[in-house]
Nucleic acid binder design. Structure first.
Lengths: 238, 238
DNA sequence: GTACTTGAGTGAACACTGTTTACCAAGGGT
DNA sequence: ACCCTTGGTAAACAGTGTTCACTCAAGTAC
C-alpha cells in the first residue's frame, strides 16, 4: 500500500496537516487570541501570505480547526462507546455524557472555541457542515443505533412542538444512515428526550468549563453526576 | 438637589459614561471584534491613549462594559418582576425566565460577550465581582424574597453535594440581605432546585441565541415554553 | 498674584495583526 | 524548448494595543 501520489500533492497535504497541528497547539497553549496567521507561519518556518494558498482567510482556517476538534471529540466518544455492549443503552448514555464532560474539561480552549462561538451566519446553511451539531448527532446516533424501538408514546411531545421535533427526528435518522443497514426508526418521543438531554448536558458542562456557576464550586463532579442520574431516572434508564 | 461636585470630576465621570456608551453601541452594531480602543476614541473625538486615563487596558474596559450589561439585564428583570404580586411565586418564576430569554434574544451580542466568554482567571476571586453570577443571584433573589419558607425536605439533596449546595445557599442569602429585613432563610432543597433551574435555563437560552441547536429550528418559542413548563411542574409550580 | 502641582489629552513611536500585490523559482505537460 | 501551474517570498497597506514624552489648562498653596 505505497503512496504513489505525486510528490507535489503529498507535500501539499503534509504542510496542510502541519498548519492545522500548529494552529491547534497554539490554541491550546495561548488561547484563541494567540491563534494568529503570523504565529502559525513563524512556527512552521514560512511566511504568513503563504497560508493563503491553503485557506482563504484566518476565519476560514479557524473553521477548519473547529472541524478537526469536533472530529477528535467524536473519535474520543466513539472509542469510549466501542468498549460497551451495544444493547446496554443505559451505560452507553452514561459513558457518552461523562466522556463529553471529561473531554471538555481536558480541552477547555477547544471547547470554548467550538461550543461558545456564535454560529457564523454564513455557516448555518440548514445544518450540514456545522461541526457543532455534527458531533452531537454522531454520538447520540451511535447510542441510538444499538437501542432501536425504545419508544415512548408519541403523544408525549406537546402539539406545538411536533413540527420541529419531526424535523429533528429526520436529521437524526439521516445521521444514523450507515452502510446498507435498514432504515432506522426513531420515535418522536425519543427525539424529544434526546433533545432535552442535550440541552441540559450542554448547560451543565458549559457552566462548569467556563467556571460560571453562580458560586465558588469546590467539586463539580458530584454536581454533574447528580444531574446525570436525575435525568437518566426521569427517562427510565438505570 | 444641585450637583455641586467640582466641575472637573463631573467632566471625568461624563466622558467615562460616554466611553462606555460608545463601546456598547459599537459592540451591538459590529460585534465584539469591532470593539476596539481606537474606534471608541474616534467616535467620541479623542485619541486612543487618552482612554488609558480611564481604563488600564482594553480588556479592563470590556470587563466594565460587561458589568454595565449585566446591570441593565438585572434592571430589566427587576421591572418585569415589580409588576407582579410578590407572593405569586409561580408567575414570578415564569416571568423571570421568559424575561431572561427575551433579553438574550434582543441583545445577542451582549449576551455572547458576558455569557459565553470563559471567566477571566483573575476575576474569579471567590465570586464577588463576577458580573455573570451577580445577575443570576439578583433575579433569583428577587423571587425568593417574596416566597419565604417554601422548603422541600433537605434530605432531597444527595449527600455528596451538601457541601457545595450549602456554599451556594450561603451565597444566595448573602445576596438576599437587603436593608434591615430579618435574615432570610433558604433551605438546601430550595438552593438545589434553583441551581438546577439555572443550568437548564442557561443551556436552553445559550443554544437558542447562538443558533446551535443540532437541527434547523423554525420556532424556538414552543421549545422554550415546554422546557419551562416541564421544569415548573417538576418542582410543583403551576 | 504668583508659583506649584495635578491630570486630561496629544503625537509619535513600537511591535504587532490580517490581507493584497507583484514577483520568483522550480516542475510537469505538451 | 516552451508554457503554465503552484508553492513560496518580500514589500506594502491599513489597522490594532500600548508606551512615552510632552503639552496645556485648572486648582491649590503661599
Amino acid at each position: 500500500m505505497t503512496d504513489d501520489r505525486p510528490r507535489a500533492e503529498k507535500n501539499r497535504a503534509d504542510t496542510d496537516r502541519r498548519i492545522r497541528a500548529v494552529a491547534r497547539t497554539l490554541l491550546v497553549e495561548q488561547g484563541a487570541q494567540g491563534l494568529t496567521l503570523r504565529a502559525i507561519a513563524r512556527q512552521i518556518g514560512i511566511t504568513a501570505p503563504a497560508l493563503y494558498r491553503y485557506y482563504a482567510s484566518l476565519s476560514d482556517l479557524v473553521q477548519h480547526v473547529c472541524g478537526d476538534i469536533c472530529a477528535d471529540l467524536a473519535d474520543d466518544l466513539g472509542t469510549v462507546l466501542a468498549h460497551l455492549p451495544a444493547d446496554d443503552t443505559a451505560s452507553r448514555v452514561f459513558a457518552a455524557c461523562r466522556g463529553f464532560r471529561t473531554w471538555a474539561i481536558a480541552h477547555p480552549r477547544e471547547f470554548g472555541l467550538v461550543f461558545a462561538t456564535p454560529a457564523t451566519p454564513g455557516a448555518a446553511d440548514g445544518n450540514g457542515n456545522d461541526p457543532f451539531g455534527q458531533i452531537f448527532l454522531t454520538f447520540t446516533g451511535r447510542i441510538l443505533a444499538g437501542a432501536p424501538g425504545q419508544e415512548r408514546s408519541d403523544p408525549d411531545v406537546p402539539a406545538r412542538l411536533r413540527a420541529d421535533i419531526e424535523r429533528f427526528r429526520d436529521t437524526l435518522v439521516d445521521a444514523l444512515r450507515d452502510g446498507d443497514q435498514p432504515e432506522p426508526v426513531v420515535g418522536l418521543g425519543t427525539a424529544y428526550t434526546v433533545l432535552r438531554f442535550w440541552v441540559r448536558l450542554y448547560g451543565q458542562v458549559a457552566l462548569e468549563v467556563f467556571d460560571r456557576f453562580p458560586f465558588p464550586v469546590t467539586d463539580a463532579t458530584p454536581l454533574f453526576e447528580s444531574m446525570l442520574a436525575e435525568q437518566a431516572a426521569e427517562v427510565g434508564l438505570g
